[in-house]
């Protein structure tokens, strides 16, 4: 129960960060990806802030033997960069550039009621399920801690 509450708070703060930063606005996302046009560097700043805080935060947290509400960290060992991950990144990027949403912001934008976000998110969840049903699970993004 306490774990679920912590996850809820994490999701809430994550969503507020996505919204404040501009990630939930396809216009900002496309502006960032429009390198040949009027490039908007805002999302680079978003990434810098998020990566900077988590780089310090995760180092401090991982000094502990275990998280506060569980007996171990659930951090999967990362796979190597193989063709599957590279092609996945490519396909992901095509969809991101086409729709202007990535998974987190799409879910947050569902609450805005925008039909584009609802349709995108439904198709995204379907795509995830189809992939795992056909090809199985790929290694998760984040490496194990030494």
């Amino acid at each position: 129960m306490r774990r679920a509450i912590a996850a809820f708070v994490g999701g809430l703060v994550f969503a507020l960060g996505l919204g404040l930063s501009g990630m939930t606005s396809p216009r900002k996302v496309i502006g960032f990806l429009d390198f040949a046009g009027r490039w908007d560097a805002s999302l680079l700043v978003v990434m810098g802030g998020a990566v900077g805080v988590f780089a310090v935060g995760h180092r401090l947290v991982m000094r502990r033997a275990a998280p506060l509400l569980d007996d171990r960290f659930h951090v999967a060992p990362a796979g190597r960069l193989d063709a599957r991950a590279a092609i996945g990144g490519l396909v992901f990027g095509l969809g991101w550039g086409l729709g202007g949403y990535c998974p987190g912001p799409a879910l947050v934008a569902v609450a805005s009621g925008a039909p584009a976000a609802v349709v995108f998110t439904a198709a995204m969840v379907l795509g995830m399920a189809v992939y795992e049903a056909v090809a199985g699970r790929a290694p998760e993004a984040v490496a194990d801690c030494e």
Partner: peptide
Amino acid sequence: ALAGGVLIGLAATLLLLFDGRI
């Protein structure tokens, strides 16, 4: 953008600290 990015990083840190999840 920076304020939002910091919140995203904080949320990720909180989830790792409390639940041990990424």
